[in-house]
């Protein structure tokens, strides 16, 4: 059986390691350090860990001030509050002056589960990618999360890293892949259609691919872990080498991965597309798997949508 690790677990682990390597790394949290996993850094480096209390706006503003003084702040809370409540501080105090703050938000998407709609950020990618100077990263598993958080720590400038609560399958071997900010990964090759997925939907896309293969459909699977800046080349290549594109994201279909891919496709090399995601609605309470099922974020739905799209082309 595949190992399952939440991407937030990877974050907590990497932070401690980064803290050992670089004295300038500081971590801020808003009273959620046990959930965001920053508490392990806090234990190891109490002087460089700042609990700001339940105040997400000041969390981001203080992080900006630390960055303006040469520190590399990692600011964490739930994705909902980081990108929603503190949006304008991220825009004006972090991104406008291009300060070196890493907004590492956990509990993104519908897989927050039981906490329900108020805590399920489904528009965070859209919000963050609309801000100039912001880099937006959404890792697929613990291995890529680890690698991309290291990469983000070395990059100078604001980065939004979207992390999840739920345990998700590990899909990458550390040795086999390179994770570079802004470079998509062709996880599996294919000639008929391309499934472009982000975050924990990459695993679902890979499962859909296997089912499609059984029906003689060869689907390429691309992991867009960096939604901004997006890897145009890998997308344009897919439009030339396969007939259609299906995007999959645990996010509102408005403004997220699907939109970002469509922006590249329509301007460069239009092909038929289908976007799978949350269809402009709020979430609800439930177990993560039940919710993924209800909102169509499953290998079965990806399989069906790919076939529908290909059937239209016949």
């Amino acid at each position: 059986m595949t190992k399952k690790i939440a991407t937030r677990e990877a974050y907590g682990k990497v932070l401690v390691d980064l803290g050992k390597q670089n004295e300038d790394i500081v971590v801020l949290d808003a009273d959620l350090s046990k959930s965001t996993k920053t508490s392990s850094f806090g234990k190891e480096f109490p002087n460089r860990f700042f609990n700001m209390g339940i105040s997400e706006q000041n969390l981001m503003g203080t992080a900006a001030g630390l960055a303006a003084s040469g520190k590399i702040p990692f600011a964490s809370t739930f994705a909902m509050f980081a990108t929603g409540r503190a949006f304008e501080i991220i825009r004006n105090s972090i991104c406008y002056p291009k300060l070196n703050v890493k907004v590492c938000a956990t509990h993104a998407g519908i897989t927050v589960g039981e906490d329900g709609a108020s805590h399920q950020a489904l528009e965070d990618i859209a919000c963050m990618r609309a801000i100039p100077n912001m880099t937006v990263i959404n890792p697929a598993d613990a291995i890529s999360a680890e690698a991309l958080i290291y990469a983000a720590s070395e990059y100078k400038g604001p980065v939004y890293i979207r992390l999840g609560r739920a345990k998700v399958p590990v899909i990458y071997n550390k040795e086999d892949y390179e994770f570079e900010i802004g470079k998509g990964i062709e996880v599996k090759e294919g000639q008929d259609v391309t499934i472009i997925a982000t975050g924990i939907m990459v695993d679902k896309a890979l499962k859909a691919r296997e089912d499609l293969l059984k029906e003689g459909i060869s689907a390429r699977v691309i992991d867009i872990h960096t939604i901004k800046p997006i890897d145009k080349d890998i997308i344009i290549k897919a439009t030339k080498e396969t007939k259609a594109i299906v995007t999959v994201e645990e996010h509102n279909i408005l403004g997220g991965l699907g939109s970002a891919v469509a922006e590249v496709v329509v301007e460069n090399s239009p092909v038929p597309m289908k976007m799978i995601g949350i269809n402009d609605t709020f979430g609800e309470s439930g177990k993560p798997d039940q919710l993924l099922e209800k909102y169509g974020l499953t290998p079965e739905n990806i399989f069906n949508k790919v076939k529908e799209l290909l059937n239209k082309l016949k």
Partner: peptide
């Protein structure tokens, strides 16, 4: 003002 808190912490 919020940023000034971060600057004071850094110092």
């Amino acid at each position: 003002f919020s940023a000034s808190v971060g600057m004071a912490l850094a110092s």
